[in-house]
Design a protein around this nucleic acid. Structure first.
Lengths: 339, 339
DNA sequence: TGACACGTTCGAAACGTTTAGATTAGCGTT
DNA sequence: AACGCTAATCTAAACGTTTCGAACGTGTCA
């Protein structure tokens, strides 16, 4: 900018004023400055600007695993939304590890991100103090966090699972295996309640042996399914917690020599482009990923626009049961495709 | 830092020296300073540091679509690599649009990223001048770029497709539909050569009507497949350019009332966790995503470590044909699973 | 004892912006 | 002709670091 100012024979203040439109500058000077900018190929240094202004027009986004299609989609939507708004996005993957998350959040704050969207891990760790100190706005994504009172957008997980399990019960299933993620995060907790609720409403017993948990990975789903399938009285249906885990479930079913839905029905959380392309077509609980991402972005953008004092807002969206043909009525042939 | 210095009754220079280990500071002062840092909860401001040092320990990464599983995986690997090295990653999606890409790259450069990894779009646009000006190192990912002479890691696309098509020919297929992406990027160009090469080696004619192109989306694959399937003499096999497009292909086959592999064989580029879980199990060309991501990261990290003058390095990795059961020998029953 | 070297600490400039407040010029009023 | 007002421009401080060179105190050696 100094060079531009010299070339245009004006002060840096005038250049700045022109660039930011913070003051009127005469036509001649305007022209001289613009010419100088072109000649020199000047680009304003955003770092210096950030230092002075105290804002970076950058936000931090942390998710457990970007390869989980649910998070992939949400990240994509959020990225687009902030791109439109002129913000850059720093992406971090916490690998479902609290220490990693804490470290990455610290890194992001050091870099003066203007806001944070977090699909948190563990008990939230450092998040609590950040939200309390209230320097940078935080939006919780997908997972609430006890003791962290801030904007959030989550699914009505209880209802979603309750609907899915009720559907299985209506098909005649009585022993429904349930594979969940680590239980310390809110969605898993709420989904478990939904599972219990549906069983209870149908007067079915809750068998602990039918509940398995794992760390969200394919291998965890595989192992959990293997255990369920080798029970003396094995379940006739399995509900799996997410995409990677349901892949593990399907592989376990295949490896053990059974088939879906003939021998065992399968449903899962999260829907994917290919859910209805292959055989069996998976019955899933679809999350409104587009809406989730957009709402999260909007909540944060609203705070960034200056609306700091509004009380925390919590958005709860509805899942949608996509009925396909991976679950069959007990004692009948596989049903045909709907959805 | 000023506050810390005051609280510890030293100068800011001493605090800085201690923090960076750039000079020895006596045990007493060390202790006073560390105490003050704890008391105040001081965190060093990375933006101010960046401004002074001229380095941000941040890199920019642009890909066409993060929801394409190939890019999802590569992004994930790259993100992890830079995370380990203490770098932050700014992620941009160009949506296969050159203007968007140019704008995003400019944004990244304004923010003084230390380096760039780009899965480029169009003709590269602004990239040329950036690489020439040589201020920030650039690594090309997945796609070379004419006139942009810099580090790159790509697949041997020609060989990969040639192998896949040759495999189809060995199964007895003579009319092989080929669905490609927009032809202005190097992989699509090389793959087309591979396709031609395989046909030629087998003495088969090259029928233009069997070649369709689209913009990498599911809908493009769907439309292209619809066109291929309504040819008077329709192909007995289809090779599809990527994951979203092959989903479109499968949907088109289903919607038109055919089935795979009985009526039509299908193979595609890129492998996915679920490729071998459902029916049919997809025959694919697997890219070594882990290696691609790591190599790209290493190339850039090497430049960032100071190795600026080495000539551009071009890494070419091999794909691997994953033979499953979505392609059948012509005139015979579907083969059983391998791989 | 004076000169010198060494180890430790500090003052101040610099990175590239923004911005408050000062300055200047032009113009209309009285 | 002196005054005040407005519009345009400038000066200089500030943002929070790093770093160069100077300063200071202490010990060693001639």
């Amino acid at each position: 900018m100094l060079h531009v100012a010299e070339a245009a024979r004006v002060s840096v203040a005038t250049v700045s004023a022109l660039l930011n439109g913070t003051a009127t500058v005469s036509p001649e000077l305007t022209q001289r400055i613009e010419q100088a900018i072109r000649d020199i190929g000047y680009k304003r240094n955003a770092i210096a600007r950030s230092l002075k202004m105290g804002t970076t027009r950058t936000i931090g986004l942390t998710v457990p695993h970007i390869t989980n299609p649910f998070f992939t989609d949400v990240v994509s939507v959020i990225q687009q939304a902030f791109d439109r708004a002129g913000y850059a996005v720093m992406l971090c993957c916490t690998d479902e590890d609290l220490n990693t998350q804490d470290e990455q959040i610290r890194l992001l704050l050091d870099r003066m991100v203007d806001g944070l969207i977090v699909a948190r891990v563990g008990d939230g760790g450092i998040l609590k103090s950040i939200v309390e100190d209230a320097n940078v706005p935080v939006v919780l994504l997908d997972r609430l966090c006890e003791g962290v009172d801030t904007d959030a957008v989550v699914l009505d997980n209880q209802r979603a699972v309750s609907d899915a399990v009720t559907y299985l019960i209506h098909l005649g299933h009585r022993r429904i295996g349930y594979i969940t993620g680590t239980s310390d995060i809110s969605p898993m907790h709420d989904r478990m309640i939904g599972y219990r609720e549906a069983l209870q409403a149908a007067g079915l017993p809750m068998a602990e042996e039918l509940i398995r948990s794992g760390n969200f990975h394919e291998i965890d789903g595989y192992n959990a399914t293997m255990q369920l399938l080798s029970l003396h009285d094995r379940p006739s249906a399995i509900f799996s917690a997410n995409n990677p885990m349901v892949i593990g479930t399907m592989k376990a079913i295949r490896d053990i020599g059974l088939s879906c839905p003939e021998d065992i029905s399968v449903a899962c959380f999260d829907d994917f482009p290919w859910s209805d392309v292959f055989v069996p077509q998976l019955t899933t609980v679809a999350q409104p990923v587009q809406a989730i991402g957009e709402q999260a972005a909007n909540l944060l953008l609203d705070r960034l626009a200056g609306n700091r004092d509004a009380p925390p807002r919590k958005l709860v969206l509805k899942g949608r049961l996509m009925i396909r043909n991976s679950c069959r009525p007990l004692g009948a042939l596989p049903q045909s495709v709907s959805a």
